[in-house]
Amino acid sequence: MDTRVHDDPSHAGTASSVAGAREAIPISLIINGRQRHFAIEPWVTLLDLLREQEHLTGTKKGCDHGQCGACTVLIEGKRINSCLVLAVSRDGAQVTTIEGLADGDRLHPLQQAFVEHDALQCGYCTPGQICSAQGLINEGHASSGNEVRELMSGNLCRCGAYTNIAAAIMEVLDKDGAP
């Protein structure tokens, strides 16, 4: 494994502290509301850090090339492909994964809507779909079904549950009265 946990929070990343580093670099991230510290090699992606360091395996590695959207997480509330982000480059960022959406045992409205609309079959793409949908809601550029489908096109579903995925997202959008 390329990463190891770093417990010393004094290693806040600064320009000078990382100059020329080829070995592990200290960074901190706020992951699902918890401050976490790491010492990681610069080639570790955010996806690998989440899965292998934090054991947050809800975020999936699908294509690992930014083509499928299974690795979608939110950084500062914006959805991105975590497979194409080097973790060192996001030092200090707030990251939200699928594990951070529910409120204890109470499902997030998108999770509830996906269940009610049967918006999945195998479920592999679902965490990415839901994080992406939360990003879509945060962005506020979609209200019609056409807009939801266009702005969810970065998330592929091999099972073809698209109709129900769009319906689930539309229901949450309508309940929010947004945007």
Partner: peptide, 9 residues
């Protein structure tokens, strides 16, 4: 590949 990393200030 392995590489070094610098954050330009």
């Amino acid at each position: 590949n392995r590489f070094s990393y610098v954050r330009a200030a």
